[in-house]
Amino acid sequence: MARSSPETADKDKTPRHVAIIMDGNGRWAQMRGRPRLVGHHAGARRVKEIVRSCPDLGVEYLTIFAFSTENWKRTQTEVAGLMKLFKRYIRRETQSLIDENVRVRFIGDRVRLEPSLVDMMDNLELLTAGNAGTHLTIALNYGGRDEVARATRRLAHDVAAGKLDPRHVSDETLPKYLDTCLLPDPDLVIRTSGEARISNFLLWQSAYAEYEFIDTLWPDFTPAEFDKVLRRFGNRERRFGAVPA
């Protein structure tokens, strides 16, 4: 049987959960002779458009990689600017997210973040907790290895406290301790900007995800291109280690 083209892919095969490594903001700005933070602001505007496109495209869960545990290595100016941008995004978009029925969650280690930013994150999660539309998860000070290490510590604590029998620990146990314990695993992971690596993002959860590495820089990643990527996903055959019948 002939496979459908990207333009005619079965919309019923739209991934339920899409995760995106939003790469290329700094290069986008530098190509235009502007400071890197200008690219991050452009990238934040693009996030808003992509989130709004999810209901029409059939995406229920969207997880975006906003700031990694390794991003602290960047210049103090860029890091400080990013933290201000996160606060600005929350302040400006809270009401829109509520009105558009978006539920927001944050994953990552909040210990190193400014208390004022953590308060804003907590408040946004609370205000959108009753929303049942797009589930937007923002990975902030997040690293896959760090997440697994923190989850393992919590699991070990429960074993030591007698709450968990180590003989019953399986590959279904650890996910209950991960930051994403309330989310389905991603079906599709997209990375923009032409880089072909996963950068410590959702290591456990993406074991059977499909990947798309695209050349487009994140600020140029439009809902139309998002739609094309989703259609290509619809043409893939996911076997999860099995042999097709």
Results as ranks from 00 to 15, higher is better:
V118Q: 00
K176P: 08
W218F: 14
A224E: 13
T180C: 09
N200R: 02
L85W: 10
N235I: 05
E125P: 12
K87L: 01
G130T: 11
V38C: 12
V189P: 00
A156R: 14
T134P: 07
E7N: 04
S5L: 08
T222K: 05
G143D: 02
T134F: 02
W204V: 04
Y177P: 12
P6Y: 03
G108P: 06
G133Q: 02
F213R: 02
L164T: 12
D165C: 11
S170N: 15
S4C: 00
N235L: 03
E212W: 00
M22F: 13
S206N: 02
R154W: 08
R45Q: 15
G81Q: 00
D158W: 12
Y208P: 00
R92Q: 08
D109L: 01
L230E: 09
L183K: 07
A80L: 06
F221T: 04
K84W: 00
T180R: 07
T77E: 03
L217R: 06
G234Q: 12
R153Q: 08
A161E: 14
A242Y: 10
G81D: 06
L62P: 13
N101K: 04
I98C: 13
N131T: 04
Q95D: 15
P166C: 11
R3V: 03
I190R: 01
L126D: 12
T69Q: 00
T75A: 00
